[in-house]
């Protein structure tokens, strides 16, 4: 089994609130998995568990060959596995998360220099290549505040790629953008998918999901209700709640 992420009856609680219920899911290398669901269904929490931004309490989560410690173990200092996992997993956030006091170039080079101990020259050369790839080479020396939302999100993608991740997580990457900027970010993500990157994407862009995803996962109230090929899921959802969800989102 060539899985990069493997969840076995994973459970997460916020206090007494059961957020993720017995999640079983495997992501194979090179796969693009889109996670759909209404807001509050737990889909963001699910992918935030993959790089340890959220802790889970029961079950098992293996990422890239490393076992993610459960909450009790992390309190005891299971931070080494966590650091190992995070080195190989990139994440793109809804609100970009760029560092406002650093230039675009410094935003991209800081992690490779600090974490991978690359030299400045090497890190900057890689950064310029990545900026080329997302079409922002000319903006290298600007500050994030001088860029549009779409441009900032493309910088954020380049910043994650600079760590040469094996897996990219996208947490609603286009939800904070003006409609006319959604396209440019989706184009970059499309290009990334076709280059063979493994991706887990939480999004409300149904067109993107249908076109790019290898598999679609539908989550409701913390449980996975349906996993399947996008065409099957969109044309012929088996679950009632999935059907009513699609009816609601596709109407607009």
């Amino acid at each position: 089994m060539n899985a990069i992420v493997e969840m076995k009856s994973m459970n997460k609680f916020y206090g007494t609130h059961h957020v993720l219920k017995d999640i079983d899911l495997a992501v194979t290398r090179g796969e693009v998995m889109v996670i759909l669901g209404a807001s509050g269904s737990g889909k963001s929490t699910l992918i935030r568990c993959v790089n340890g931004l959220e802790m889970y309490q029961h079950g098992r989560l293996v990422v890239d060959g490393f076992e993610m410690p459960v909450e009790a173990d992390r309190r005891l200092g299971g931070e080494r596995e966590l650091a190992q996992i995070r080195k190989g997993v990139g994440m793109v956030f809804q609100q970009f998360g760029l560092f406002p006091h650093k230039t675009v170039l410094d935003n991209i080079t800081i992690a490779p220099m600090r974490v991978r101990k690359k030299s400045r020259e090497e890190a900057e050369a890689t950064a310029m290549k990545l900026l080329d790839r997302v079409g922002l080479r000319a903006h290298a020396n600007k500050y994030p505040g001088q860029l549009s939302g779409g441009q900032q999100q493309r910088v954020a993608i380049a910043r994650s790629l600079a760590m040469e991740p094996h897996l990219m997580l996208f947490d609603e990457p286009t939800s904070a953008l003006d409609p006319e900027m959604v396209g440019e970010v989706l184009d970059v993500m499309r290009e990334l998918a076709s280059s063979g990157m493994t991706m887990m994407v939480v999004t409300h862009e149904m067109g993107f999901a249908r076109e790019v995803a290898d598999r679609v996962v539908y989550i409701d109230q913390g449980s996975i209700l349906e996993i399947g090929k996008p065409d099957e899921f969109f044309d012929n959802p088996k679950n009632d709640r999935a059907r009513s969800f699609l009816a609601r989102v596709l109407k607009h």
Partner: peptide
Amino acid sequence: VPRAQTEAARSLGMSEFDINRSI
């Protein structure tokens, strides 16, 4: 400083010391 800044830095694998010092 927004929590998102720390989370973004963590997701890049930066150590807590580096995050506090540089971000």
